[in-house]
């Protein structure tokens, strides 16, 4: 079953949509879906008040949000299966704590996309902002599985406290990418202003663009070609094409095992 939600008009007060998971609304009819209560600011409204709802045939549980805006928050939070397609931008916490399924966003996403994600896929065609795949504020366990792909740029502190899984940013990122990382792989195709992997203990970060500076607490290990990245010894490994400067760190921790791969071609100023 596919549910198509279309915003009736632009909303000002944000709405939380974690009650509308494809697996939860599977099998409901239009009227039932319109009757679901969702919080808008400090009030509770019904889905039918702000969305046009339609149902179409589909083999998997699907939900499409048309005319979406940054005011829709917590879309797909905790989902385990199915697919959500968002045509437009979407607000904070999209795909937070998700365990499976797939979310496809055709616009931009706000902060905390894929926060604490445990599995599944989150694909964003536009730009992301801060804390992608990170832990909740104050928490120390971030994304632990699954895949996040951002085709545009991203903000600061992406993959904060990442424990597993992969984040792939095809554009540029801000400061402190992979801070406190304890596992997982972060791939950045664009440029990084610096402070990459601060306090990381484990995990790997690959930079294909320009990195202005490596933190002084990282140790240079030499140049590697087409490295196969393994986080644990038993891992199959992820093979990456290209020539990289390799660093380990962050040596502000005791016995760190973090790996940093920085493209040789784009970074003639390093090492």
């Amino acid at each position: 079953m596919e549910v198509i939600l279309k915003l009736k008009e632009d909303i000002v007060v944000p709405v939380e949509l974690d009650a509308l998971l494809p697996e939860k609304i599977e099998g409901m009819d239009v009227e039932e879906i319109k009757d679901i209560e969702i919080p808008q600011g400090r009030r509770t409204v019904k889905v039918g008040d702000i969305f046009h709802v339609e149902i179409e045939e589909s083999d998997i549980p699907r939900m499409t949000i048309k005319n979406s805006s940054m005011k829709l928050k917590r879309v797909g939070e905790g989902m385990t299966t199915g697919e959500i397609v968002i045509e437009g931008d979407v607000g904070m916490h999209v795909g937070a704590e998700m365990r499976g399924g797939r979310i496809l966003v055709h616009g931009n996403v706000d902060n905390w996309a894929g926060r604490g994600m445990k599995g599944g896929e989150l694909i964003v065609k536009g730009n992301g902002r801060d804390y992608i795949g990170s832990a909740y504020r104050g928490g120390y366990k971030g994304m632990s599985g699954g895949l996040i792909v951002i085709e545009g740029n991203a903000g600061h502190e992406i993959g904060e406290h990442i424990v597993g899984g992969m984040i792939h940013i095809k554009g540029n990122v801000g400061y402190f990418a992979g801070i406190h990382a304890k596992g997982g792989i972060i791939r950045i195709d664009g440029d990084v202003p610096g402070r990459l992997g601060a306090e990381m203990i484990k995990g790997a970060i690959v930079v294909n663009g320009r990195l202005s500076q490596v933190l002084p607490s990282f140790k240079y290990e030499g140049i590697v070609e087409n490295p196969v990245i393994k986080i644990k010894k038993k891992d199959e490994g992820v093979r990456i094409e290209g020539t990289y400067h390799m660093y380990t760190g962050d040596y502000v921790n005791r016995k760190p095992k973090g790996q940093l791969y920085v493209s040789v071609n784009k970074n003639p100023h390093l090492a």
Binding site: A135, Y136, R137, G138, G139
Partner: peptide
């Protein structure tokens, strides 16, 4: 103060 994640 230092554990907003516990509050959550």
């Amino acid at each position: 103060l230092m554990r907003p994640e516990d509050s959550y």
